[in-house]
Each structure stands twice: as structure tokens, then as C-alpha cells.
Design a protein around this nucleic acid. Structure first.
Lengths: 189, 189, 189, 189
DNA sequence: CATGAATGAGGTTTCATTCAT
DNA sequence: TATGAATGAAACCTCATTCAT
């Protein structure tokens, strides 16, 4: 019966947050700047997010949700190579489509302000664990901690995204080379 | 740049900064907290560093300088494997000896507050560029951008340090495996 | 002053106000809390009361109106003792029935936000002035300002109500003793 | 070795608080108004009082301390009448000298923001308890709760102060009459 | 009329930096 | 030079009030 809460406004706030957090860092992006970038009154931000911290967490959750959606047609039954490559490609797709999000995710993760539930491992992580393990066995790395392999995979993917962001012209080649490196590392040859 | 006299005080401030930046993040470590942790008056901090930003930059330079010193006996004439392994080992040595510095370096790098000169490539980077290139040629990756390979090397090393920090008991093994992965990635087999 | 329709809603808002003003004080009872306690939308409050200040004044008037109603069968023709005792008893009855109202009235009076008309002397005050004067003459206090005597009477009654609120078990006795003190003060003996 | 904390500044803040709290009420006296009235920067207030609540409590303690000082030469060995009269006179002296403090004390007490220790009963209260009890026995009120009598005494004194504030010309007379009422109430005759 | 989202002024507090001692 | 009080510009958040639905 009253004016309904607007998804567009909520989204505008989240988008403005990404923009500002990426450019200035979380602590140097005041809520006032966010609301003004989102073309919304200062107080309005707080009807959508009770506190700045809630905004941070919600933003992180939202980004992960989108990643999960991107991964929706994950080839659960494919072979290791196909599965890893799928994640690799989708990850780089996202990084190219939303160049600032990666940085924001890193900022958020290192901010110490995320609630545990926001960081809970999701499907992608679980699949990466499985695939890394299988891959490692192929490569004679049977006893290696899968957590470590996933860390390595993410580090590699992020490094690649970072490089691509700085060298757009080597987009396609870097994506190939990057995966080749990962695959070689894991499986050898 | 006539320095104020007590080097001990200056060092205390830098040490306190590392501690606090690692624990709370740069933006949540007020200069007042730093000075009090360094057992120095609030104003004193500003006789050693004109602004907080100057402190950040100086801290970053200082840490890089120490890394360079650690690398002093770099085996310039060794083979690729030896040279990469040397950097790998020293890097992990430092990470183990000063567990908080790595995090602080990441914070600083992503803070957007470092001056260009503080990030200028140093000897290690240059050597890594050279070694990566040679390694890549061995591995049939002749045309790949050395910058990218260095990025990958650092990502890998940081991931390994992070894993070791969380799993102290796998220290030695992770160091070996980690390097094996890098080497395989680069050279194949 | 065409009133919006639901008297029940209006009353709910007033009741919620008493509750919250007593518990938290006027300034710490936001209109949003009042409306939600009254099970009414935030905006609705403002169709019944144009501003928070109007709510305050209206609430005060309403409470005084009820006191007047309670005093409806005031024994205008009784003797001084009977008249004073009547007011005394009704006042304490009200205080017991609505323990929070007294506090709210004090809050409101000391808030500096009541309009003059809301504080205009009413029947009770007028009768108290008359009775105090008569009583004082009996007690040889002929020239004393009746306003002062009324102030004293109210102070005494409020102190008694406050004491009773904290010591329910001494209800009846305190009421008697209290009046005895007032009567003695006024008339001596 | 640095600029010492200035008692004058601290006092200016407390004085400004009394002024503003009395005139507008606690909640309507922003710390910014207090600091500006005290001719001090906004931040300075917080070097003397960590929070507004601490300021409130400190102000209350300070006022009670001064009352205690005023009561320093309390005639512990005098008779009941002398002791009650002493408190009565000192109380009205203070009220006349600092007309706004009384109101501020009431505001503070009803604010719900005082810590328990700030309200702990002090010497005056203890002596009033003793004297009230003795007086009441003289007046045949043996079993009456001394707490109640003290409440009554304070109510009476505050009513008198309030009346005097509004009618300066009746200062001396009101003081006498007021005490006569109290004494009569307590002792009869 | 009822609803509750939208607004923006204003409140308390923090903090980098300056400056009197 | 060292100290820490002084400063005032933000920062985050609240809340009375308005207004679209």
C-alpha cells in the first residue's frame, strides 16, 4: 500500500559501492559518497542496509551469488580437464565483464569485516577441491592438500585476470597460457 | 632530509605499524594507536613521518629494502632452477620470520596510497624477469610475457606462504610441493 | 479540526507514547518507535498529530482532562479537610492505576516543549488554591502565597506516589501518613 | 612537557553544560553547542570527557561534590531542628547562587543515563535520614519510613526553591515559611 | 486514509595534523 | 626534540517529517 522498496535503488547502491570501493578502498568510500553516486539520499542507503558493515556483507554475498549463477551449467560429469577449464573460463569471463569486482572482493576479504556466513565455501570451491584432487593424482601429487591446490588455482586465476586487465590485447592468449600453466603444474606435461 | 635523531624510535613506529596494519587494516589503525604502541607521543610520529601516507610509503620501502638485503647473496651465475629456487626460499623464509609483513604488503599495495617510486621494480623483480624468461624458453613458452610469469610466480609464492601460515606442520612439505608446481608450470615436467 | 477517523488509533498512539516516554524519556522515544508500539504505520502518527510536539501537548492535555474527570464529584461544599483529602486520594488513585503517567507528566513539564495553554490552571488547581488558603488561615499562615502552598501540596503528593511505587506494601499506610504530614504542615496539629 | 590539560577549560565545559541543559534539556543540548558555548573546539570536549554520557555523570558528581563542600561545617552535634535547618538553608543558598543547577540535577536524575555510583547516597542523605527519624519520633511518627521523610524533605525544599526562583521578592519569607511547614509536618506544632 | 520508503539536517565521535609548552 | 592537548573536518547513523502508492 505504500511505496514499495525498489530493487533498482538497492542495486544502484551496490553498484556504486563496487565502483567506489574498487577505486578508493572500502575505508575511503564514505557512505555519503556511495549514496550520492547512487543518486539516492544519504539516509536512503540505511533503509536498504542497516549499517555500512551490512552493506559490505550483502555486497559480498551478492557477488558470490552471481558467480554461482554463472557456474550454473557446470559440467559435473565431465572429465577433470573440462571441469577445471570451465571454472577457469567463467572466472575470467566475470573478471572481464566486471573488472572492478575482483579487486572489491579482495578488499572485502582482507577487511576483516565479513561475517563467517558470508565466506562459507560454496559449490565452486567444493568442485575445485574435487577436481584439484583428481588432477593431482594424475600428476603424481597424491598426498598434497587439496586446499592448497585450490589456493594455488585461485592465485593463478587472479594473477591472470590482473594481467589481462592491464594488457587487454593479450586477452585470449593469456587465458590459454594461464590455464596451460595451471594444468602443467597440476598434472605435469 | 635531516633525520630526527633516534633511529630506535623510528623503528619502533615502523614495527608498531606492521603489527597494527596487519591486525586491523590500514584504515582502522589510527596514528594515535600506532604511536601509543610504539611508546611514543602522538606528535612524535609526525616528526619522523610528515604524514600518515609518508609513513605508509616509507614502511613499504623499508620492507622492500630488507628483502633486497635478504637476497644479497643471490647466485647470479647459477642456473635457472637454482636462481628461482633461491628467491622462492628466501621469500618463504621472510614470510615465516615476519608473518605479518606479507599481509601488510598486500594491504599497502591495494590501498592506492603508494607512490610510484615506492613500487619501482627492484633487483629481485629484474632477476625474476630474467629467470622466468629463461625457464619459459626451456618449457616451450618462448613468446610469453615475462611480466605475466613474474606475476604468476609471486601469486604462487604468496599462496604458499598463506597456506603455511595456516598449516605450520606442513611447512617443509608445502615449500617443496609449491616449488615443484611452479617449476612444472614453467618448464613442464 | 476535522479528526481522522479512528479514535482507537489515536488512543493507541497516546498509550504507546506514555509507555515509551516513561521508560526512555521523551527524547529517546522516536516517533517510529511510538508508531510501531501502537501498531500503526510511521506516517499514520502524523495524520493524528501534525508534529511530535503536538503529540506531546495533546498527550499532556489528555492526561489533565482525565484527571479532571476523575475529580468530577469533587465535594465543592465539603469542609477544607474533606476537599483536600479528596484531591489527595484521587491523585494517588490515578498514580496507582497508571504508574507511568506521573513520570511522563514530569518529563513533559520539564521538557520545555509544552505550550502555555496546555499548562493553564484547571479546576483542580483552582480548588487547591482555595482550599490551601482556607487551611492556611486555620493554621495561622494567613499571608502565605497560595501558589506556594499548592506547589508544596503537589510536591508532597508526588513524593508520596513515588514512594508508594517503590514500596507497594506500604501503600495504605503511606497514603495516610502523607496526608497527615500535609495537613499538619498546613494547619498545624 | 606538553601543554597541560586546563582545569579552566574543563570547568568552562561543565559550566556551559549546566547553562544549556537547564535551558533546553539534555537531549536538546548538542555537544557542539556545549563546546561552542565553552569557547572550545568540538573535539576538545572529548579530550576532557570521553563521551557525552561521561560528561553527564561527571557533571552530576561535580555538583554533588560541591554540595558536600557546602555542607562541610554541618553541625553534627546540634539538635534536630538545627541540623535540619542547616541543610535547608544551605540547599536554598545553593539554589539561589546557581539557579540552573537544580533543574539540571532533576534533568540528569530523570534521564536514565546516570551510573549507579554517581547516585550513591552521600553524607547529606545519611544525615537527613538520621534527623528525619529523630524528628519524626518527637512528632509521634515513630514507625514511619525515614526514606519517605527524606523524599518529603527534598520535595519540599525543591518546591521552595522553585517558588523563590519565580518570586525573588519573597525570598526570605518563603524560606522561613517553607521550613516552618516542614517542621510542622514532621514534629507537629 | 493508511502505509512505509525517501529525505537530509543534525547528532556524537574519530582522527590526522598542528602547536603551545 | 618530545609531548599531548587542541583543532575541525568528516564519518556513520538517527529521526522527524514528507510524499508516492
Amino acid at each position: 500500500m505504500a511505496r514499495p522498496r525498489s530493487d533498482a535503488k538497492r542495486q544502484a547502491i551496490l553498484d556504486a559501492s563496487v565502483e567506489l570501493f574498487a577505486d578508493r578502498g572500502i575505508a575511503h568510500a564514505p557512505t555519503s559518497a556511495i549514496s550520492s553516486a547512487a543518486r539516492v539520499a544519504e539516509g536512503t542507503l540505511f533503509t536498504y542496509f542497516k549499517t555500512k558493515d551490512e552493506l559490505l556483507n550483502e555486497l559480498y554475498r551478492e557477488m558470490r551469488k552471481e558467480i554461482d549463477q554463472e557456474m550454473a551449467d557446470f559440467p559435473f560429469t565431465g572429465d577433470v580437464h573440462a571441469r577445471l577449464r570451465f571454472v577457469w573460463d567463467r572466472f575470467l569471463d566475470m573478471a572481464e565483464k566486471h573488472p572492478k569486482r575482483l579487486k572489491v572482493q579482495q578488499h572485502l576479504r582482507s577487511s576483516g569485516r565479513l561475517l563467517k556466513d558470508a565466506e562459507a565455501p560454496n559449490m565452486v570451491i567444493k568442485e575445485l577441491l574435487r577436481a584439484s584432487k583428481e588432477g593431482a593424482e594424475l600428476g603424481g601429487l597424491g598426498g598434497v592438500s587439496p586446499e592448497y591446490l585450490v589456493l594455488m588455482f585461485r592465485a593463478q586465476a587472479e594473477a591472470t585476470a590482473e594481467f589481462i586487465a592491464a594488457h587487454r590485447e593479450m586477452k585470449a592468449k593469456s587465458r590459454e597460457i594461464g590455464f596451460k600453466l595451471v594444468w602443467r603444474a597440476l598434472v605435469g606435461q
